[in-house]
């Protein structure tokens, strides 16, 4: 139905798309560790050794775990399987709260203690007016 040239061009584009997708996939796969913005407490527990370089951990701030002492904040980051204690002193973002997502940047002291140099609050995908939130909580 179509000419030979049309078929050739189509095959050329298709091959280009497949090859380039595959290369992109392989590149991203090999860079997986850098693509991931933060690691979960579970991942930290399974680390073969504790590295000295700066890393980011993330998860939920455990309920009733925030302890403010003078200049220091202590809290527990959890992914509901494993937990890690975090110590931090510095500016806390407004949305930092118990039961909400958090990303901490800093250094691992050991598998249970993380010394944060920066804290970012993670926002979840829920958007609603305050009244609705209240109604939901009352339910």
């Amino acid at each position: 139905m179509y000419g030979r040239k049309v078929k050739l061009r189509f095959i050329f584009l298709l091959l280009a798309l497949i090859i380039l997708s595959l290369s992109t996939f392989l590149i991203i796969k090999s860079l997986e560790e850098n693509v991931v913005y933060f690691q979960s407490p579970t991942k930290i527990k399974t680390l073969p050794e504790i590295e000295k370089k700066k890393i980011r951990i993330g998860g939920m701030v455990k309920k009733e775990s925030i302890l403010v002492k003078e200049e220091e904040v202590k809290f527990i980051v959890t992914d509901y399987k494993n937990e890690i204690n975090v110590i931090y002193s510095g500016v806390i973002p407004n949305l930092f709260a118990e039961g909400k997502g958090v990303v901490a940047e800093g250094f691992l002291k050991d598998r249970n203690l993380f010394l944060a140099t920066k804290i970012l609050a993670k926002h979840d995908e829920n958007y609603m007016p305050p009244e609705i939130k209240k109604a939901l909580e009352e339910k």
């Binding site: 690691q39 970012l120 995908e125």
Partner: peptide
């Protein structure tokens, strides 16, 4: 991947997590 950016709130197939207003 784990990202700082939140996942999508609006899903065509499942319930959206954004209030109608």
């Amino acid at each position: 991947w784990n990202t700082l950016h939140q996942p999508a709130s609006i899903n065509i197939l499942s319930k959206s997590s954004i209030h109608i207003s």
